[in-house]
Design a protein around this nucleic acid. Structure first.
Lengths: 127, 127
DNA sequence: ATAGAGGTTTCAGCAACTGGAAGGTCAAGC
DNA sequence: GCTTGACCTTCCAGTTGCTGAAACCTCTAT
């Protein structure tokens, strides 16, 4: 299967797929004309990457997850460890953003937003 | 005031301060020896940037906010518009992360995390 | 023969810094 | 006067995860 069909199949841009190859995540075979040729195994990995990235795992996490995915004997605790620490990261980000939102939304609400120059938002930033 | 004192004063790394100068956000004077020399005005701007970046405004937002900050006649609605759209962005990110967290936390919970190879997380990613 | 829709590589750029190298400057201590 | 160490300077490269564009090759259809 050529790259654009693989792209459709896995919901990834061709650019991204080539990039994943460049950094050693997927290595499709090549046809006589030099075109990349994706088999079922490659497609599986690409779908795996698409899902894992979609869940916010870093590319380096994905590299490890892929190798665990390919290792029929890995312990589920190895996978769980990565997922858990990613989860902690996500939760940290959420609460950080929530406190940002609270501060910012107070500022926005206190600003009348009219033609006059007085602005509590700017005042706060400049304080 | 030299750069490292300014850095302490504004809670910013010197590298960042030089970077802000490079992209035209702050332009301190120079001493005879070539050292940067920050006056109160520069420090105000740096503190402003520190706060605004801390609130998650992009550097380009900060550029606009700074110019509004310096414009004694700007309308508060100009500021409010930027802050509001930033707020929307933050709220979008929060709910995105929340749904990520929900999915991931289900997966993590369903994985027993022991020595055995069977792993619902990997299974899900590979599906 | 040619047009166009694919494919290939390589380089540059995005955001917002951060690290490091190579070198100039300054104050203190001997 | 000299050295040491802590500053300062500039410039270049790297980070993350792609994305755009240029220059070129290949295949298919007309």
């Amino acid at each position: 299967m050529n790259i654009s069909d693989a792209a459709k199949e896995c919901s990834l841009p061709t650019k991204t797929i080539r990039y994943y190859e460049e950094i050693g995540l997927v290595s499709p075979g090549r046809l006589a004309n030099g075109y990349r040729d994706y088999d079922e195994d490659d497609l599986h990995k690409l779908r795996f990457l698409q899902r894992a990235r979609g869940l916010g795992f870093s590319v380096e996490d994905c590299r490890v997850l892929l190798s665990l995915y390919e290792d029929r004997n890995r312990a589920s605790s190895d996978v769980k460890k990565i997922a858990k620490s990613h989860l902690v990261e996500i939760e940290r980000k959420i609460s950080e953003l929530q406190s940002l939102r609270d501060t910012l939304s107070e500022l926005v609400q206190s600003c009348h937003g009219d033609d006059r120059p007085n602005c509590p938002i700017i005042n706060d930033l400049a304080r």
